[in-house]
C-alpha cells in the first residue's frame, strides 16, 4: 500500500505539489470507476479519493450529485467501494475513501476501518464529521493504521483550524471557498490565506480542493499548497462523454494537464 506520507515525500523531493483526483465508486460503472481512476494515476495523479455514494450528499454540487445518484441507481454498495479501493490501490496510488459519516456509522466504525485497511486503502476524508464527533473514528482508524483527513474552511477561525488539524493525519484538506463541490472559473482567493493560516497550526501537508478544474488553476494552487484536489472536472468529462471509452480518454487527458500544472 502506498501511504500519504510516501506520496508527499516523493512530491517534495520532486519540488512539486501532489495531484489528488476524486471519483465516486460505481461511476460511470463499477469497473469503469477502477478503469478511470487507474487512467488518472497513469497520467499523474498521486492520490485517488474514492467517493462512497450517499443518498444525501449535502456538501456536493450538481455534478457530483448526478454521478453519485447514477452510482446508487447502479446498485453500488459498500462492498463495491472496498473492491474499487482494492483495484485502484493496485495502480500504486495512495487510495482514500471520501465519505459522509452515516454510512460508516451504520457499517460500524471499527469494521469499516478494518475493511478499508485490508482493501489497501490509505485512509478517509470525512466532510461532515467534526472534531467533536470524531473520537470513535479516530480510534478505529488508528487501530487499523489508516489516515484521517478532515476539512478546514475559509470561515474557520484559528482555534478551529488548530482543533481540526490535530485530528488529521496524512494531510489537511483546505476548502478553497465557501460552497459546495464543483469546478469554477477561478479558485477562491481565500484559499491562499487559509493555507497560510493552517500552516501555523500543523506540519502536515495541506491540500486545496473545491473549484479546481484545469491546469492553470492547478499551477496557481500548487504555488502555495502541497496538494491540489480535483473531482467535479473529472466527473464532468465522464458525464459528457458519449461512451465510457471516450470518457476514459478525456479523463486521462485532463489528468495529464493537471499533472503538468502541479509541476509548473
Amino acid at each position: 500500500m502506498t501511504t500519504l506520507q510516501t506520496v508527499f515525500e516523493k512530491a517534495r523531493a520532486e519540488n512539486r505539489s501532489a495531484l489528488v483526483g476524486y471519483l465516486p465508486a460505481g461511476f460511470p460503472s463499477k469497473d469503469g470507476a477502477v478503469a478511470a481512476a487507474t487512467a488518472m494515476v497513469e497520467a499523474g495523479c498521486d492520490v485517488i479519493e474514492i467517493g462512497l455514494p450517499y443518498s444525501d450528499p449535502l456538501m456536493d454540487g450538481p455534478t457530483i450529485q448526478d454521478a453519485v445518484h447514477r452510482s446508487l441507481v447502479n446498485g453500488t454498495r459498500i462492498s463495491d467501494v472496498m473492491r474499487t479501493v482494492e483495484g485502484v490501490a493496485a495502480s500504486g496510488a495512495a487510495t482514500l475513501v471520501m465519505t459522509y459519516w452515516n454510512p460508516v456509522d451504520r457499517y460500524g466504525a471499527e469494521r469499516f476501518a478494518r475493511d478499508l485497511a485490508s482493501a489497501g486503502g490509505a485512509g478517509t476524508i470525512t466532510p461532515d464529521l467534526t472534531p467533536e464527533e470524531s473520537e470513535p473514528w479516530l480510534a478505529a482508524s488508528k487501530e487499523a493504521g489508516i489516515d484521517t483527513v478532515f476539512l478546514v474552511a475559509p470561515s474557520s477561525p484559528d482555534e478551529r483550524i488548530s482543533r481540526v488539524a490535530s485530528c488529521c493525519t496524512g494531510f489537511v484538506y483546505a476548502a478553497s471557498l465557501m460552497g459546495v463541490t464543483g469546478a469554477r472559473e477561478s479558485v477562491g482567493s481565500a484559499a491562499e490565506g487559509l493555507v497560510k493560516r493552517t500552516r501555523s497550526h500543523t506540519s502536515l501537508p495541506i491540500c486545496v480542493g473545491l473549484g479546481v478544474g484545469n491546469g492553470r488553476q492547478a499551477a496557481e494552487v500548487a504555488a502555495y499548497a502541497d496538494g491540489v484536489i480535483v473531482g467535479s472536472a473529472f466527473i464532468r468529462r465522464l458525464l459528457d462523454a458519449p461512451d465510457e471509452k471516450t470518457g476514459l480518454a478525456e479523463v486521462r487527458e485532463l489528468a495529464q494537464e493537471l499533472a503538468r500544472g502541479v509541476r509548473r
Partner: peptide, 12 residues
Amino acid sequence: GGRYVPEALIPA
C-alpha cells in the same frame, strides 16, 4: 443531536 456538518458551517 450534535453537529454532523461541514466544518465551514461550524462558525455560523
